[in-house]
């Protein structure tokens, strides 16, 4: 998006947002989890795939997992994968969705009809189903396959929101004026339409991030992970499920991380949505 055009509005938007309890809490917790995911690997007592004791023993803060690896160390290493894939998938979904939605709203007429009908078809797939259908024919999905699948499953949902927001903008005077001045259509979209959609789109991005984390963890939980040996919060739940009765922390630690992360991003998204709604009044 055009960062230069939205820059003047951004600081005040952020300050308004921080005054809201819900957003501030979600934002701070999200930052903490992100910091944990990025920096924790440097402090982990054991390596990512290092054996620390016998399987499902009580050694260490959270005990050991099904292979005898230290759960705390795995937890510290396992955030990065989930975080990076979720953020990339969210970005991809947002860009694709905004593109489809804004073009549909701006072009109008026949284009709008065709794009949105096709969008409805994609919406008929529950998000997890879209990913699973494609994974059927693949042997070992690499990380970017998961990014593309999760991102693509977001796109139609983002497109619907983006179109709705853009419809309220494309008919406004300043857009008509820019067109009358002979601006190129792509420039009208980038410089006039998009900067006025930042608020609602940020809220949507927060929501999409929440769902991305859930989906990425879910795929790991179902056993469709890019790298079977690596630590990954979703995969850790899957690996240690059978030991839930004897060594619950091997499952509960990643489960709680995912829960905290999604609660925080969801609070943040809802706070953003409230602010952007109030801003329009």
């Amino acid at each position: 998006m055009s960062a230069t055009a939205s820059a003047p509005a951004a600081p005040s938007f952020l300050r308004r947002a921080m005054n809201q309890k819900r957003f501030a809490f979600g934002f701070v917790v999200t930052l903490l989890v992100v910091a944990f995911a990025i920096f924790a690997p440097f402090f982990s007592p054991y390596g990512e795939q290092e054996t620390a004791g016998s399987p499902y023993s009580k050694a260490g803060l959270f005990g050991t997992d099904y292979l005898g690896q230290d759960v705390l160390s795995r937890l510290m290493h396992g955030g990065q994968g989930v975080l990076v894939i979720s953020v990339l998938a969210t970005l991809l979904g947002m860009v694709l969705g905004i593109l489809i939605g804004v073009v549909a709203a701006y072009a109008g007429g026949w284009w709008d009809e065709v794009l949105m009908r096709f969008n409805d078809v994609l919406l008929a797939f529950p998000q997890i189903l879209l990913a699973l259908v494609v994974l059927t024919a693949l042997q070992n999905p690499s990380a970017w396959v998961i990014v593309v699948l999760v991102g693509a499953s977001h796109a139609p949902r983002v497109a619907r929101v983006a179109r709705g927001v853009a419809l309220g903008i494309v008919s406004r005077d300043f857009v008509v004026a820019a067109e009358a001045l002979g601006e190129k259509r792509s420039r009208v979209i980038l410089a006039e339409v998009l900067p006025n959609m930042v608020g609602p789109l940020l809220a949507e991005a927060g929501l999409r991030l929440t769902y991305s984390i859930g989906l990425v963890a879910a795929l790991g939980f179902l056993g469709f992970a890019a790298d079977p040996g690596a630590a990954n919060w979703g995969q850790m739940m899957n690996e240690n499920r059978l030991g839930l009765a004897t060594q619950p922390w091997a499952v509960l630690a990643p489960v709680l991380m995912i829960a905290i992360f999604t609660i925080a991003t969801n609070l943040m998204a809802d706070g953003l949505a409230q602010i952007s709604q109030r801003g329009e009044d």
Partner: peptide, 17 residues
């Protein structure tokens, strides 16, 4: 609002535990 964000299988595992 907090519950709305949590993925369903995470809720499920917590309920099982």
């Amino acid at each position: 609002l907090a519950l709305a964000g949590v993925p369903e299988f995470v809720t499920g595992i917590l309920l099982v535990a």
